[in-house]
Design a protein around this nucleic acid. Structure first.
Lengths: 222, 222
DNA sequence: AAATGCTATACGGTATTCCGTAAAGAACTA
DNA sequence: TAGTTCTTTACGGAATACCGTATAGCATTT
């Protein structure tokens, strides 16, 4: 089994539970930290001491508080760590369940596993660790597997996102039209914008603009 | 100390940590559940068995899964439970840190304490329980205390919440008017609803309804 | 070049929002 | 009872959303 593991998690409740789960896997050295910056320093020092970590388990989002941290999210943390220790194994342990988000984590960060915080996540986390150690394929959470495989997912382009964001800022279609014209974004006519908004409304089954923003906010798109 | 306590929390990691924290307070009977509906049934059965719970600690948001639950949030759960056992003590233990939201929980649900999941929440939870048991004033988390004491804060009533919720469901003012008439909610005329929406728009500095919903969604009010 | 198809744009009519003003009703005061 | 104030309701006009149809531009095909 892995010898030295680091847990980066800001919520104390979750952190103690994860550490306990690791202890049951008879991992010798388990360290935990509540801040991304601290996690980075620990990894760095471990390399320096010639006793590097084998695995890091990290949350994605960290609450901000009085401290002014350089690294503020799990993504930034992993990106920074991979630069100084490319061979370290990484698991993200997060509540995030948006498929497109998770997909990009595998593709862009090269994480080894993604475990979704949920009703049976302790066991899932343990099996994920075991499988990574055995170099086996890591199975994702049940619910997740479905959404990741779902090819029918509407391709939301960045154009749609900025359109939705402008709407949620309280701009009228007229406003957005001039905004897009200024930024050189096309299409930018009222008519085209309306047509695009309409497509989004159809896709998300929204009755009107208010409804559309409510839905996409819930999905975390905006 | 309290004798019988129920923990309603869907994330297994947090649940085990909370139960451990309770054990250290030498509480005799500690039960936990991952679903709102189950929590309600446990409370109900305990009343029936003449051994009611003294305290419930509940999360606010619960993940939805294959089960089709009637109660889907901590708010709904507490509302339902207060109807069958009005004297039960309740603590909300959630990641939510928006002052509006929390204030409305105190005002509309009559909770006894609000503890924010964070880096030192285990200790905060324990002192909150102790203080409720001693009938002392419950101190809220440091950051929270400031915003809650602010009397200039607009009093968001449950009326406003249901209005915003209806809007975010894509209903028109006309629709909401008939909906409110059917439910016996007053005021319910188009004019009054518009006036109320206007106040909210002024308060939240929203340009239009879309903007208003975007803002209140961000604040976690809807 | 002509035909085709796709996309962006233009326009018009209806519905809804947005925002005033005013009347009706209820609660309180003198 | 009459007066005062606050809340609810009514109404009207301008702005915007909503939705259909029609034209213009551009690329590809024939």
């Amino acid at each position: 089994m892995f010898n030295k593991v680091l847990v980066a998690e800001d919520l104390d409740t979750i952190s103690v539970a994860v550490v306990q789960a690791l202890e049951k896997l008879s991992i010798a050295e388990i360290h935990s930290t509540k801040y991304c910056d601290d996690a980075f320093l620990k990894i760095k020092k471990a390399i320096y001491d010639n006793a590097p970590y084998d695995l890091m388990i990290s949350d994605l989002s960290f609450k901000s508080d009085h401290r002014e941290d350089k690294l503020t999210s799990g993504e930034e943390l992993i990106e920074a760590i991979k630069k100084i220790q490319p061979d370290i194994k990484t698991i993200i342990f997060s509540i995030e369940d948006k498929s497109f988000r998770i997909k990009s984590l595998f593709n862009n960060l090269g994480i080894n596993a993604y475990v979704c915080k949920g009703r049976d996540s302790i066991e899932e986390l343990q099996t994920a660790i075991q499988r990574i150690y055995n170099n086996e394929e890591v199975k994702t959470s049940n619910e997740l597997a479905l959404t990741l495989r779902d090819k029918t997912l509407f391709e939301i382009e960045s154009y749609d996102i900025s359109l939705l964001k402008s709407l949620s800022k309280g701009l009228t279609v007229e406003d957005i039209s001039t905004e897009f014209k200024d930024s050189g974004i096309i299409p930018n006519s009222n008519s085209s914008l309306e047509k695009r908004i309409n497509k989004l409304k159809v896709y998300f089954k929204a009755n009107n603009n208010v409804h559309l923003i409510a839905i996409t906010k819930d999905l975390g798109l905006v």
